[in-house]
């Protein structure tokens, strides 16, 4: 894949109010690059969900986006607790989010399924006690 642009963001795990800042920046970059609104919206939602997950579960992480001619690749990586049962985590409504997170409007157990819905490919690498890396692709060609 020939890359046009590479973007890198650090996601601060200590600031819930700031969760989503990377997604907002990615959204603006993609808009400047002239991508269709639907593509931008899907990516913004997927990255935002991932960012929220990294803040509430993993004490932050990183978001990397490679913009190519045919596809946009997104990698979200954290050094959090890992996901013990990925199949369960992919079930709609299944969540380990705290009551505090729920009262802030998140933790409905829709994050991972929604990331999958909004992207064309999604792969989860995770190891308990080590961290989680999520690769997502959105086709743009």
């Amino acid at each position: 894949m020939s890359e046009l642009v590479k973007l890198h963001y650090d996601v601060d795990g200590n600031d819930f109010a700031a969760a989503g800042e990377a997604s907002m920046k990615i959204k603006k970059e993609l808009r400047n690059l002239g991508f269709p609104q639907d593509i931008i919206r899907r990516i913004a939602i997927a990255v935002y969900e991932g960012e929220i997950n990294m803040v509430i579960h993993a004490d932050g992480g990183t978001a990397d986006v490679s913009v190519g001619l045919d596809e946009i690749d997104i990698t979200l990586a954290d050094k959090g607790p890992g996901i013990p049962d990925v199949e369960k985590a992919m079930q709609k409504g299944w969540s380990t989010a705290s009551e505090e997170v729920r009262s802030a409007g998140f933790g409905a157990g829709m994050g991972l399924p929604n990331m999958k819905k909004n992207t064309d490919e999604m792969e989860i690498e995770t190891e308990v006690g080590v961290g989680t890396t999520i690769h997502m692709k959105v086709y743009v060609a």
Partner: peptide, 17 residues
């Protein structure tokens, strides 16, 4: 429409255009 008060309501709305 929401009764939630935090930055994420603005970000969610923005994300969804």
């Amino acid at each position: 429409l929401t009764g939630l008060v935090n930055e994420q309501i603005v970000r969610t709305a923005a994300m969804m255009n």
